[in-house]
Design a protein around this nucleic acid. Structure first.
Lengths: 342, 342
DNA sequence: CTGAAAGCGCTTACAG
DNA sequence: CTGAAAGCGCTTACAG
């Protein structure tokens, strides 16, 4: 049983209604061609269009103009709580400029990333926002090769020369470590995120630079393969197994911190009584956890918003494609940090 | 400075390469027309296509076929933690069937809902999934009027006769209330969600039915206007102000419960020492909160997944458009419920 | 099994 | 200021 389909009203239908050529209707309805048309005619067309309930077929217009008013977004996983605010920032801003966004989850899988990009190319996206970049990123290269305007968000690639919206990681790390040292912590460990991501790598480097500069030991580091709770648990167990004293931990992101805290609870370590811990990102509901996690808060929504503005500049040719926007993070002190236990 | 654009390879390019007509290429590359073409030719075409890096222009194919392999999704707000898992379920399943999804946030605003639907129509979406329905919903009506295949998810409309994927609310409520009564609670309050939504309304009715059937008072109810933490706070204050005894609360969703707990903390009421509380939905991180919230867990990812399957059936004409899929929720007992305090 | 033609709904260079 | 024509990249009914 096939559905009956009501034929949609086209530009020709409104043209016929008022006996003009459909090209006139097209012009009258387009914001930048409207001035070629007499005011009276524009009004007539608009009325006719409204009367028939006309709305433009963007698919047809995309085909002709070779731009789709659509941008693609590549993220690892929508269910990771960092992303919804970023995406919302992207969607709101895109919408404000008349663009639609299509998102793909790639689960950190290179094949999926490639497939998603191909799918987006097939849909003639005008540009793509990439939140999945690794320091060496084949997808960024693929975009360059195929002349697809793109911008990285949050993570970037080594070497630069590429548009990106990132946060000032040095500042973020400095700010947590200043906080910790002001609480008299001197033996500070780091659970680092994946070193093939710019965020994991730069945060780790910033930690070690800071600690060395301030005369503290900087080798209390465990590295993880993914930014997940499970990896946080695993790494923290390894850290404990090394049997070295420390009074505070800084983690590469909040999920890693949650993993650490799970193990601490299991082994009877108190936060912040025995150990202080700080996360990074400031995901949802941290303030309601037990204890509430001190963290470095990223301007997530803004990152998304800036990313589309910058991308639209590139698409419009008003940018040369190698600008980095660096946003400032902000320390949020909650209950997981306290004066160093003696 | 305009970007230089590499012309994309078309069906004609691959046709020219092997000296055949482009319609042959089209057929050779289409899964359901391929059998009209000799095997040798199919191979030749595929090789040529691969050699040139051809991928189909879905925009052009959409225009011709009058279907876009795209579905739209209307949600109130991506940043509300119930939605990411639903969306992910939708995206994964849609992708598996070759569909792309575009999502719009409507912030519970009728005008935005309407605009979003129009935008989607302009993009020739093949169908839409609506998570924003009110009991009387103009958008659902608009879809019917415009012959847009659609399905409701989570919330439904009064009167039925419409496709929907919902959860068995009676079962959900029975299950929490059984739990609470088994802990000897007899004076149970309800913070109800918005009554213009099916979820807010049905859950409230189920609570009151249950309480009356079991001989308990059923008038300890406060109604909210939105499913938010703030509304939970407001309603709970009103409930307290009535100065009536109760030992447990069931809320219309988790966010409302969090709002209640915020006020309890403020006024020095202990959970579950003084009062037990249960939420609904089972959003992220509830297990890490203080105390961990007992709740009714919805199969969120599955709801999204079922919604696209059902929608594709409607689009394909294999469903008559009035089926309701009712999924079972599951009680998750955590630390916010305990034996009734004397 | 393959080709030639028409057309999906727009936009835009070219005339007038 | 408006019209007539061509074309974006596909698909498909019609021939052969």
């Amino acid at each position: 049983m096939k559905r009956k389909i009501k034929r949609k009203v086209t530009i020709r239908d409104v043209a016929n209604l008022i006996n003009v050529h459909h090209s006139t209707v097209s012009r009258a309805l387009s914001s930048d061609k409207r001035d070629q048309i007499s005011f009276a005619m524009v009004e007539k067309v608009e009325n006719a269009a409204k009367k028939l309930g006309y709305y433009p077929n963007i698919v047809a217009s995309s085909l002709k103009q070779n731009r789709s008013l659509t941008i693609g977004v590549l993220i690892p996983d929508l269910m990771n709580p960092v992303f919804p605010p970023i995406i919302r920032g992207i969607q709101d801003t895109a919408e404000a400029f008349g663009y639609t966004v299509i998102t793909a989850n790639t689960d950190d899988d290179e094949v999926k990333e490639h497939d998603a990009l191909k799918m987006m190319q097939g849909r003639s996206i005008d540009g793509v926002i990439i939140a999945t970049a690794r320091r060496e990123d084949p997808i960024a290269d693929e975009c360059i090769e195929n002349d697809i305007p793109f911008i990285l968000v949050n993570r970037t690639v080594d070497g630069g020369g590429v548009n990106a919206v990132v946060v000032d990681e040095d500042c973020g790390i400095r700010t947590v470590l200043d906080h910790l040292t002001s609480l008299n912590h001197t033996r500070i460990a780091h659970i680092a995120g994946p070193q093939h991501t710019s965020t994991g790598y730069h945060r780790a480097r910033a930690v070690s630079d800071y600690l060395r500069t301030h005369g503290m030991r900087s080798n209390l580091v465990e590295t993880t393969e993914r930014f997940t709770i499970e990896e946080g648990e695993r790494a923290f167990r390894k850290l404990l197994a090394r049997n070295i004293d420390f009074t505070a931990i800084v983690t590469g992101n909040d999920l890693l911190a949650l993993g650490c805290m799970d193990v601490m609870e299991e082994v009877g370590l108190l936060v912040p009584g025995n150990i202080s811990i700080c996360g990074y990102d400031d995901i949802l509901f941290l303030e309601r956890m037990n204890p509430a996690l001190t963290t470095v808060s990223l301007p997530k929504y803004e990152m998304g918003s800036y990313a589309v503005r910058a991308l639209l500049d590139i698409i419009g040719g008003e940018s040369d494609g190698s600008g980095v926007i660096r946003l400032q993070p902000r320390l949020v002190i909650r209950n997981s940090t306290a004066t160093a236990s003696r």
